[in-house]
Every structure is written in C-alpha cells, then in structure tokens.
Simulated scan of single mutants.
Amino acid sequence: MRKLKTVAVGAVLAFAGIAGTASAPAQASSQAEYVALGDSYASGVGAGTYDSASGDCKRSPLNYPHQWAAANPEYSLKDVTCSGATISDIRNNQLSALSSTTNFVTITVGGNDAQFSSVVQACLTESDSYCKTATDWMSYYARNQLVDELAGLYKDIRARSPKALILVLGYPQTLSSTGTCPVIDLDATKRTAMNGLADALAEGTGAAATRASVYFLDMRSMFRDHGACGSDPWINDLTNASAVFHPNAAGYTKGYAAKLEATWG
C-alpha cells in the first residue's frame, strides 16, 4: 500500500479521508492518473533539455513530474506545466487537464505572481536599497494576498479532482550566502534580500496549503548549501542566462524529484 512517507508536511493532515498517511486512490484502470500543474520550476526550466513539442512552455524530461512518473510506472503522467505560468494561467490553461478520475496532482506556482523575474532584475542592476525595497514589497504580497489567491486555486483543484492527493511543491532559496557569482556578483545584502523573498514565498505557499487542506512540501531544506554561486550549486547562476536562479539538472533530480519520491513513492 502506497503511503505518504513524510507526515510533517505543512498542511492539515486530515482531509478527504486522509489522516497522517494516505493510501493510493482506487484505480479504475491499470494506471492511475497523475496531472502535473505549474510554472517553470515545475516544467523544468534550467534542466538543460526540453521537449520541442512543448514550445515556450519548456517542459523537460528531467523535470520532477517526469522523473517521479518514470520511477512510478503505475501512474500515467499528464504534464501541462508551462514556463511563465501565473495563478491565472493555471486556471485558464491547465485546470482543464484535471477530472474526477485524477488520482494525483502536483503543482508549483506563485513565483511569477510575486514578480520573481522583475525582482531578480532589480537586484542585479540596481542598488542594495532598491533591491531590498523590491523584495520587501513582494515578500509582503507573498505572505498576504498570495495566500488567498493560492488557497482559492488549490480549492478549485480539489473541486475538479475530489479523490486526488494534491501535493504543493514550494520554492527554495536561490543563492548561497558564500562564494562569488560570475558575470554579476551579488553582495551579502542582496543575497539576504533575495533569499528573504524565497522564504516569504515558502511561508505564503505553506499557509495557503494549510487553508485549502492540501499537502505542502517545503523545498528549502533540500536545497540548503546548494544555492547558486556556492561550491555545490543546484541552482543556475548568470552563466545560464535563460534559466537564471532556476534549478539545474542536479536540483531537479537531487532536490525536487528526491523530495517528491521520498514523500510519495
């Protein structure tokens, strides 16, 4: 019997008949259905290889949905993740992949709603004070308005797939506190500010998951000591311009896929 291996996930552990552990939903066919939703962190931007058929969505066969599905062939994967997706995009373009027979759902979203790319650009090109102002502003949003928006989305997922186990995978801190960033270095003030936004996103996402009674997987501990610009990075730095501060192949395998498999594998 498949069970949640990690019970200390940041959500209410009693919903839809689940209390501490969760058995696999009953299967109507030989394979259960797994639907992967989310943005670039779910689609696999930064992994280094992409399915050409996915176009600008940049879905990688190394993203965490594909790696988990490969390790669990009793599930049939429907991957509708897309780089750049916001909460609105998930509703408009991805929720249609869900059905009442969906057994398992994963999702990572919220970073684009918190203007992640714009904040990164500000911290790379502007002063320390400007960077801190930008991250403080978006951190406030992440701990407040974003919680309402994400909780509403998770409830919509539950309404479409009432029997599914829903796992929300968060974002890690992106930067190592030590080491030199190539191309454009970032001082300690900017690194602290940017990692502070990552903390706010994790806290806001976890709060939304609790409110909607779905499971939250906090990725920060998995990526500890593996931030960009450090000695063993699982996050891309500025030398990969198209995937700055997104996980690299090691980040998707040793970070996201490992956490997911350890939790529900």
Results as ranks from 00 to 15, higher is better:
N240S: 15
T210S: 10
A208C: 08
A159M: 04
G152L: 09
F116Q: 04
E203Y: 11
L146R: 07
A151M: 11
K132N: 12
I184M: 07
V168Y: 13
D187R: 08
A207S: 13
K132Q: 15
T192C: 04
T210H: 11
Y130F: 10
G179F: 02
A207K: 03
L175E: 01
R220S: 09
A200G: 10
V168G: 02
V183P: 03
A134V: 10
H226W: 07
L175A: 07
M194R: 02
D185N: 15
A114S: 14
G111V: 05
V214S: 09
Y140N: 13
V120Q: 01
D148L: 11
C181M: 15
K155A: 10
V120C: 01
G179Y: 04
D232T: 08
L175H: 03
Y171D: 01
A243M: 05
F216S: 03
L153P: 01
S161R: 00
Y141T: 02
A151V: 06
Q145G: 13
L153E: 03
I184E: 08
G170S: 12
A243Y: 01
R160Q: 13
K132D: 10
C131H: 01
T174G: 03
Y130C: 01
S213W: 07
N144K: 15
L186T: 06
N195I: 02
D225L: 10
M219I: 04
V147A: 05
D199R: 07
V214Q: 12
T135G: 03
S117W: 09
G110A: 12
L165F: 07
L238F: 12
C181E: 07
F245R: 00
L124I: 13
V120T: 05
C131P: 02
Y154W: 11
Y130N: 10
W234M: 04
T180M: 09
R158M: 08
T189F: 11
P233K: 06
V183K: 05
T180S: 13
L165I: 15
D128N: 15
S176H: 04
S177G: 13
H246W: 12
G179A: 05
G179V: 08
D148Q: 15
D148A: 14
L197P: 00
A134K: 09
C229Y: 00
S161V: 01
